[in-house]
């Protein structure tokens, strides 16, 4: 590939992710509003929020690590997007593969964890402790699922995994071939989004939004950007693993939005679990389903 083309791809992929991610945030908020019989925010609301937060004139910082945490939170996802193939663009997906992607996706949260740590606010620290616990909960079924998919495809290269699924049309989709794994993956994905009933680390009424408690202005704005990336990455990863990626932008986006709509619609019907209940739930059902699914694959 020509280097210029590659650079354009590397820049374009995060940008697309951001724009699509903003629409996903909008969809999430609209779905929440519809479920609560409200009208919901206007179309550009996510953009307004981000612009407003970045245009705050005064904001506080608790030190350099606080700043770097936000940079890492955004930058980690920007890097992760280039490992996630989309129709027509593969970026550096072939150089990392899915295990690398999985680990790169942890960088933003850990960068954020550092930043929150320096805020010297116990609410934030509790939030991070809970977020890491949640990660321990949902990553176990997630890696089982990823193991199953990668083993079935015989590769950890996401481009190849998508190609294998697209080879025979609908029938070779991961979700059709490995329905049990697909269900387990959906539950794990829901938990990884950190939405109700799994939003133990935000818990506004309990620990004052946890990690976000000391975030003002562009710091919070950075987290809003990160949320866009997070929604995009999670749903596109699921689409790439189970729904055959996308051949065209239209079906790619359609699948991504539909996949995301499932957990989001469920989310706003539920209150919040306690931490240990989340762990218990995650380590029981999706793990069980995942292991059954892997047993089919092997």
């Amino acid at each position: 590939m020509a280097p210029m083309e590659l650079i354009i791809e590397l820049l374009l992929m995060p940008l697309v992710a951001f724009v699509v991610g903003m629409m996903m945030v909008l969809m999430m908020r609209r779905i929440a509003a519809k479920l609560q019989r409200r009208i919901g925010p206007p179309f550009f609301q996510p953009l307004y929020d981000i612009v407003k937060l970045h245009s705050k004139q005064t904001q506080i910082s608790h030190g350099l690590i606080h700043d770097i945490g936000i940079v890492m939170a955004m930058g980690g996802y920007i890097a992760a997007e280039t490992l996630l193939p989309v129709p027509g663009m593969t970026g550096i997906a072939e150089k990392g593969g899915i295990i690398t992607l999985l680990y790169l996706m942890m960088i933003p949260s850990l960068g954020l964890a550092l930043g929150v740590g320096q805020c010297a606010n116990p609410n934030g620290s509790i939030g991070i402790a809970r977020a890491l616990t949640a990660m321990l909960a949902y990553d176990i079924p997630l890696v089982i699922v990823i193991f199953g998919v990668a083993y079935a495809a015989g590769t950890t290269n996401l481009v190849d995994i998508i190609a294998v699924q697209q080879a025979g049309g609908f029938e070779t989709w991961g979700a059709v071939q490995m329905p049990v794994l697909a269900i387990a993956g959906l539950i794990a994905m829901h938990a990884s989004l950190g939405k109700q009933p799994f939003e133990i680390y935000i818990a506004p009424a309990e620990i004052a939004t946890g990690p976000m408690v000391e975030m003002s202005g562009k710091y919070l704005g950075g987290l809003f950007v990160m949320q866009c990336f997070q929604l995009y990455t999670t749903s596109v990863l699921y689409v790439s693993l189970f729904l055959g990626g996308g051949t065209t932008w239209f079906d790619f986006l359609l699948k991504s939005f539909l996949v995301l709509a499932i957990p989001v619609s469920i989310a706003y019907l539920f209150p919040r679990y306690r931490t240990e209940d989340l762990l218990r739930l995650m380590w029981k059902w999706p793990v069980m389903l995942g292991l059954i699914g892997v047993a089919f694959v092997l």
Binding site: R38, G40, P41
Partner: peptide
């Protein structure tokens, strides 16, 4: 805030800590 008058359609939403609020 809720379904009768729905502040969110004006882009107004509740926040928790003073750092985040306008």
């Amino acid at each position: 805030m809720t379904s009768r008058f729905d502040m969110e359609r004006l882009g107004i939403q509740p926040m928790v800590s003073p750092r985040q609020a306008d």
